Simulated scan of single mutants.
Amino acid sequence: MAKKATKKSEAWVYFDHIVADAAPRGLHSNPWILNEKGQAVFSPDFDTLQRLLGVPLYLAAGTQSGVPALALDVWLSYEFRRAGFQTDQVWPRPSHPRILPAPVAALISNLNTPFRRELERVIADTASIKGVTSASSIILGKNYTKQVDVVISDWATGPELLVSTKRMDSSYGKNAANRVEESYGDAKNLRLRHPLASLGFVFGLRSDIFEKAPNKAPWLFDLLEKLGQEDDAYHATCLVLMEYDGTSYQVPEPDGDNSTAELPGTGSDDETAELPAELPENEIAKGLANLPKVSILHDKTPNELAPARFLATMVMRILSTTPVTMHAEARARMAAIKPSIKA
């Protein structure tokens, strides 16, 4: 009997289609543009973000499924690929397996055809291969391991980008402070072991906080800004303010704060890894055509927490802490939009 698909395994199917539509044949648009002052700025693809955010609403996937926050992870990894970082360097990848070290991918591509096809089949048909592929990134900090949501890493360099994401669609009064407090500890744990990595934090928040907890919103925004200003915390923080088109759409959440702390250990996710669901093409097309509309409220987002600023800061820090011979495509994409200087 076939195993019933989970919300997450179904969500991956829709996420992968949305990202593939945004980058046909794996070709990504250049996110860098010149503003009215002639300055290079990062221009995020918010249309793709809004489609991704509609998936958990369409599937009625609750917070504990991991799908609502995963929509942010998928978008961020897509944006870093737009910036010029390679597919196998940025995790989660846009296809299964989500974590595949670049040297392993290079090995596979250099194998003789029969061996390559067989290995590709094994990887594609296996949820995770211990020590090789994985569904999530487990990073060792100073004192304990931590699941990090969006990562750029390589065996030769170690982690170069570590971004954690949180999502909150309700229970603002109960859980908002807990989310920020957890992040302070996580940031210090990671930064002490990986001081050169670009460390970031992205918080997805539903816009009805302004109606349900109006006094909480400015307090939370202030905490998020300060989280990106501490010397031993994140290099930048980001707020994604989401407005649903219609009050009927809800991301189911448990009552109270049911988050659990994991004991430090190996951080293996072999037992929870799963393959993308097998859905009929007509069902996928129907879902993509009927995604609930989600809007991003830019005018209510503080400048210090703007997604464009966050992404630019992360990319610039990666490039500034590595030799110019590394990340050639990312550097070329930035250089491509700068006006030529005539002698």
Rank of each mutant, 00 (worst) to 15 (best):
S170D: 02
Y144I: 00
P97I: 07
D169T: 08
A187W: 03
G185I: 02
P92M: 05
P103D: 08
N112R: 13
K146I: 00
K142Y: 10
L224T: 00
M168I: 01
E118A: 13
K212I: 00
S207M: 03
N175P: 00
V90M: 08
N143M: 10
V150Y: 07
D125K: 11
T165D: 03
A124E: 13
N175V: 10
M168P: 07
S95R: 13
R93P: 02
K226V: 09
E120S: 12
T126L: 09
W91H: 14
N215K: 14
K226C: 11
G173H: 00
T165S: 10
T133W: 06
S136Y: 07
S95Q: 12
L140S: 14
V122S: 11
A217K: 06
K130P: 05
R121D: 11
P159W: 02
T145C: 09
V148M: 07
T113P: 03
V122P: 04
V151Y: 08
S137H: 10
A102Q: 15
E160W: 02
L162Q: 08
D232C: 10
D125L: 09
H96A: 15
E120R: 12
V132I: 15
R116G: 08
E120G: 10
A176C: 07
A217D: 00
S171T: 08
L111W: 05
K130H: 14
I129E: 12
P159R: 05
S164E: 02
A187T: 06
A105S: 15
S109Q: 12
S183A: 15
R191C: 08
F221G: 06
V202W: 01
G185F: 09
R167H: 03
S164G: 11
A176Y: 01
R193S: 11
T145I: 01
A124R: 13
E120N: 12
P159Y: 04
L161F: 02
A124P: 09
L100T: 07
V151T: 13
A177F: 03
A135P: 04
P101M: 05
A213Y: 00
Y184T: 11
R121Y: 07
P195Y: 06
I123L: 11
E182Q: 15
S171P: 00
F221S: 06
G204D: 00
V151I: 09
R167T: 01
F115K: 14
A102W: 03
P159A: 11
R206Q: 00
R179G: 05
P101A: 08
L223W: 06
S95T: 05
L205A: 03
